[in-house]
Design a protein around this nucleic acid. Structure first.
Length: 208
DNA sequence: GGGCGGATTACCT
DNA sequence: GGTAATCCGCCCA
């Protein structure tokens, strides 16, 4: 008998058509990065689904296809990382089949291991709730930047996994997405998923 | 080649 | 509640 590290979530997890289901199921999963021998892990507590060409909030709305968004049109289970406001790295996960540009933004996570490394990366002095709350902070603490875009999450060093924890259904709530007012009516869609009462969820505390 | 603005954050009053 | 920070990406010319 031997013990093994938790395996990366398989391609079958990402290669599904319902981006909302995947965004919900990502809650409780663990992001693992092991860059330059520095292991950091964090449990996802907040996600947002971006539903491809029909979603006005998505970079791929209307079939928009550019050098930056090309990765979303590729294989599921790949990282889409872009720079926002010239400062913040946004870590997304590509889902669905090739040519269907669905993606899920990771907006909040609870730090598990490698907290000293996260503090070093973020320049913070103490590991309070701001360490991995908000998409820019999640990516920064985990060392994820735009150079990782296109990286397969089915491989070593940078992947998602499960330790068996699944949040109770009653602890999950869907809300409109943050910061997408430009999307008109689509800004109201309940495509954001959070674990209620979790301090690593961005914005105001959410209760039922 | 130029201009505009953003799937944010932190710090200000 | 207001806004500076900071840099491409993207669109238009």
């Amino acid at each position: 008998m031997h013990t093994t590290a938790n395996q990366p979530l398989s391609s079958g997890f990402y290669d599904r058509s319902d981006v909302l289901t995947i965004a919900r199921e990502l809650l409780g999963k663990i992001i693992v990065t092991n860059f330059n021998g520095e292991l950091t892990t964090a449990r996802i507590v907040e996600t947002e689904a971006y539903a491809g060409v029909t979603d006005k909030a998505s970079h791929a709305y209307g079939g928009r296809r550019t050098a930056r968004t090309e990765v979303m049109y590729g294989e599921a289970g790949v990282a889409y990382v872009y720079l926002c406001y010239g400062i913040h790295q946004m870590f997304n996960i590509v889902t669905n089949k090739v040519d269907i540009p669905h993606a899920i933004l990771i907006r909040g996570a609870e730090p598990l291991t490698g907290i000293p490394v996260m503090l070093q990366r973020t320049g913070k002095k103490t590991a309070d709730f701001t360490l991995t709350r908000g998409p820019g902070n999640v990516a920064k603490a985990l060392g994820i930047n735009t150079s990782r875009t296109g990286h397969s999450l089915l491989e070593d060093k940078f992947y998602l996994t499960s330790d068996g924890f699944v949040p109770p259904e009653e602890d999950i709530i869907a809300t409109p997405r943050i910061g997408v007012d430009y999307a008109g009516a689509d800004a109201l869609l309940p495509y954001r998923f959070v674990i209620i009462n979790n301090k690593y969820v961005s914005g105001k505390p959410i209760r039922k």
